[in-house]
Design a protein around this nucleic acid. Sequence first.
RNA 1: GCGAGGGUGGCGGAAUUGGUAGACGCCCAGGACUUAAAAUCCUGUGAGGGAAACCUCGUGCGGGUUCGAUUCCCGCCCCUCGCACCA
Length: 834
Amino acid sequence: MPDYDPKTIEAKWQKRWEEEKSFKVEADPAKPKYYLLEMFPYPSGRIHMGHVRNYTIGDALARFKMMKGLNVLHPIGWDAFGMPAENAAIQNQSHPDTWTHANIKTMTAQIKRLGLSYDWDREITTCEPEYYRWNQWCFLKFMERGLVYRKNSEVNWCESCNTVLANEQVVDGLCWRCDSEVVPKLQEGWFFKITDYADRLLEACKDLEGGWPEQVLTMQTNWIGKSTGAEVDFQIKDSKESIQVFTTRPDTLYGATFMVLAPEHPLTHSLSRGTKQEKTIDAFIKEVKNQDKIARTREGGEKLGVFIGAHAVNPLNGETIPVWTANFVLMDYGTGAIMSVPAHDQRDFEFAKKYKLPIRIVIRPPDGNTHADDLKEAMTAPGPMTQSGSFDGLAGDEAKQKVCEYLQSKKIGKATVQFRLRDWGVSRQRYWGTPVPIIFCEKCGTVPVPYADLPVVLPLDAQLGDKGQSPLKSLDSFINVPCPKCKAPAKRETDTLDTFICSSWYFERFTSPHEEKAPFSKESNRYWMAVDQYIGGIEHAILHLLYSRFFHHVFRDMGLVATKEPFAHLLTQGMVIKDGRKMSKRWGNVVDPDHIIDRYGADTARLFILFAAPPTKQLEWSDQGVEGSFKFLKRVWRLFEGSKNIFDDKPAGDDTEAELQTQLKDLRRIIHVTIKRVTEDIERRMQFNTAIAAIMEFVNHLQKFLEGWMKHPHEPSAKGQALFKEAIETLILVLSPFAPHIAEEMWERLGQPDTTHQAGWPEYKEEYLRADQIEIVVQVNGKVRQKLLVSESIDEASLKVKSLEDPRIREWTDGKEVKKVIVVPKKLVNIVAK
RNA sequence: GCGAGGGUGGCGGAAUUGGUAGACGCCCAGGACUUAAAAUCCUGUGAGGGAAACCUCGUGCGGGUUCGAUUCCCGCCCCUCGCACCA
């Protein structure tokens, strides 16, 4: 008997899959499709266990769906632009392009060793002009639709390196490279108006319920952060100026006893001019600006504020109230100014207490006490308005609505909504990215590069500086171009696009990766989209998924895609941990996938990863667990090799013997039960761990069965042989999505002409699931006291009698009164006796 | 603080609709095979009691509903993740 030899087997089948392009797919309207996608990797160097887990989960599903007869699109590509390439290039004196492509080569080889069912003809690499030209195309199309604009925004700036830093390059407020202090700097850049889609992206979350994890939908909802309320204008006393505020509680307007502006608010400075507060305000603005942004906005952080020197008029009651500025009011949310209602807002309450500002209750508390002095904390619950003139008595949404109507009629305010979501800044002052297709002309201004001139190719002859500045800024051959409009000398934009853009539509591209006239073909897209199952890490729960949804919504408005949402089902896989910690270089607990494959083979690695935990939970790496999976595959191999002679032999013996009959029926039942369990665990529950457990039990049964058979004086009957062969075939097929190499090898050795995924997924028959004899648990007062073997078809009355008459049960019921007998068909009997 | 998920043997985990808690695997112990080891196979393996048959206890803690609760309800503790001065 040849030993299980994963090295040879796996190399053989991987070669065959590659040569025969076994997983190449074409759109075929006659066949039902299934689009399965794992988040494509960043080519960082080598694959890690997180990747392996991601792809293994995806591959098991993909192969299962193929066997089920679906036309499965299962593509792979590379998210190849990004900062690590630049950093590595600086460190190794090489080029990001060289580094990236070398990594892709390494990782491709690693991925291929896992035996994944990818259609390699659809491979995408985002740093190739064939791909990123469509990033530029999208940028221009979005621009035509009014979704692109330029504005100033704050960036992290390192004075010493003279460069913009990404958030992750700022470590404890210091530059990661030179350790000098990072300062905020205003810089002009390009923005995508994702806020135009805020409401629709929020609304569409409802369509994703059931298909997406609730947690992710909650995160997206919070991130978009819609709040409804009103904008209200407060006139400045003795001035033409007015302050606009946003509030979610227009029903508390009568309780506004002061106002607070953000320190950055232009009126903070201007209103204080000419007052006694001038110097205090200037000092305060400076102080807050120097305060760490995070410290400033942390809850429990100290609320600091000063009086501005001006007063405003409450538009509803005409009262004069002081205007303050404070650190807790942020310029980039709402209007940068608030009306303060200390009685009904906790922050305002704390602020009012600290600075001895008046507090007035305008929402009637349940106990009716409207003495503000008695308040211990703000009363934020809704309730009827009080001390609010003609609005008294109105409550909740109706109250808010009435106040808004009044404001609107007086033209001093209106109902409105606010979003926490900010527009998406897409400018990066980096080299290794998609050039922004814009030309600046002195005469014509900002000129888009004509579509015919795309792509704007990223010059590969640029040399990176040692501090991380983009070399594009000083590359004359790149910068200097004639203006597309007036042909006068002009300058190219040197910013590149955020790499999130690459990943925001790659899944659309996979539907027609070689399309040359458009980012993707409408027809292919219509057939393949939406992605039926998307699999990736939870770390992308917000940005990547939100941006991708945004792109898809815009594409839909452009008439390019047919579905409302891009990803019908989302699975967020759990982390891989070892010794209780995330597997990472930082903790020095990394297990290299290559080493595992070298030692045990890909099938073992895949099987372990799928068996050790359900996909959504974290996975504790265990070398012994890997060993266990390897042992299991060896057992399967031995079972297979050992049973071959049974169905090789000529049929003999007879199958009329009762015991053997029962055994065979049992075997048949186990085959069908196993198919059912594995099928449902994959399809309905996506619990590969229990699917594999079912297969292990199946193997245990078959082994026992085989042993018993060998001991039996008779030769196996023809029927028995056929059934056992069916069992082995079933085993191979259900194992195939998880451990495809060994499955394929055994399938071939069995003399099958096709492959396992051509053979199709086995079906179970309901009628074969039943056993003649079933075990019934008999309880007395809820405690298990006996187990009865009864006929499957026993009626309730006889089962009752049988249970009550059982001697072991009598021991517990004798001398007691049987009050009640509960019978759960085919499961249990519970006797209540007192 | 708010929201979500979780807490089950020595470990990873199972229990699908309220119905045998601990499937499957790992570890460990004993045995078989072997000159020996590895590999493989067999047996045992939640805790306590018992020679055994069996019995009692047991799913974070405390209550409740129910014939019956890991599962449902109420209160509490702990862990993980996300959000958090958002007006």
